[in-house]
Design a protein around this nucleic acid. Structure first.
Length: 272
DNA sequence: ACTATCCTGAGT
DNA sequence: ACTCAGGATAGT
């Protein structure tokens, strides 16, 4: 489900709610979601700790705790974090953190999400996290950086942007939207992208992520922010989920193909 | 550099 | 009954 704008929307709200609270007790309904500890170890390591802040890198959330061990969370397709005060019953709740004042819930329909115990300082030892590239919204993501990364790759641009090691935070929706804004066909090889097009791509990536965030994220199916309400960026998408419908720029029908194992939408007239 | 796979639920 | 879904990675 969530890409950078959705994860950031959740982070901002949850951070405000839980920072400064203590973890009083943890209930684990689905232990296999915890990837590097048993349910007992997980509960023992986090119970009694104070939550300092909730941070984000790419699509990962890091709940920074007062002790040596913190919590790393990846929502994958259908995970979400919800905060409630007072606690209520939540469907598909997989883990419940009882805090000093309210409850933090990890909810997940498809149960593909991941939670890890990580050191509070330094490298996490989680390969996906430690190998993340700069966030698409960070100042380190520059035109020269992107151009250098593109030059070194023969892959299709769609696969390149979905891979989190060059740029972090993009997923299937925002990749399709960014390539549309940049007038680049998803099947184009990275090393065949001109300097001018890579500039446009850089600006498009930054812009689609910023806009997504301003709109509170994209709710297609079941994304909800930490408060349980939907985003509205879905109302502004140009290609994602619009196959067969007219391109907002030229009116040509949006095409659907399978690329990098994912459904991919583009305008055959505007994107070359 | 691909594809198969982990899951559940919705849509056809 | 079968396909698809906002993600990532182990295996080929």
């Amino acid at each position: 489900m969530p890409e950078l704008p959705e994860v950031e929307t959740v982070r901002a709200y949850i951070d405000r709610c839980v920072s400064g609270q203590y973890i009083k007790n943890i209930e684990i309904f689905l232990p296999r979601l915890i990837k590097n500890a048993t349910a007992e170890e997980f509960a023992a390591a986090l119970t009694g700790q104070m939550i300092q802040s909730v941070r984000r890198r790419g699509k990962y959330l890091r709940v920074q705790c007062s002790g040596a061990v913190s919590l790393l969370v990846h929502l994958r397709m259908t995970g979400s974090l919800l905060y409630e005060e007072p606690c209520r019953d939540v469907p598909a709740r997989r883990i419940l953190f009882r805090l000093s004042k309210g409850c933090l819930t990890y909810r997940d329909i498809r149960t593909l999400g991941c939670l890890w115990l990580v050191p509070s300082q330094g490298k996490t030892g989680i390969s996906g996290y430690d190998s993340l590239g700069p966030d698409g919204t960070s100042p380190e993501f520059t035109v020269p950086y992107l151009q250098a990364a593109l030059k070194g790759s023969h892959r299709k641009i769609k696969a390149f942007l979905l891979d989190q090691t060059a740029v972090a935070g993009l997923g299937n929706i925002y990749v399709d939207e960014a390539l549309f804004q940049a007038h680049i066909r998803p099947s184009r090889r990275c090393d065949r992208i001109s300097r001018r097009d890579s500039e446009r791509l850089h600006d498009a990536v930054v812009q689609v992520l910023r806009t997504g965030l301003e709109n509170g994220g994209t709710t297609i199916r079941d994304f909800i922010n930490g408060r349980g309400s939907a985003g509205h960026n879905q109302d502004f998408l140009c290609v994602y989920g619009r196959e067969g419908k007219p391109c907002p720029v030229c009116g040509e029908p949006i095409k659907y193909v399978k690329l990098a194992g994912r459904g991919t939408r583009y305008c055959p007239h505007c994107q070359k």
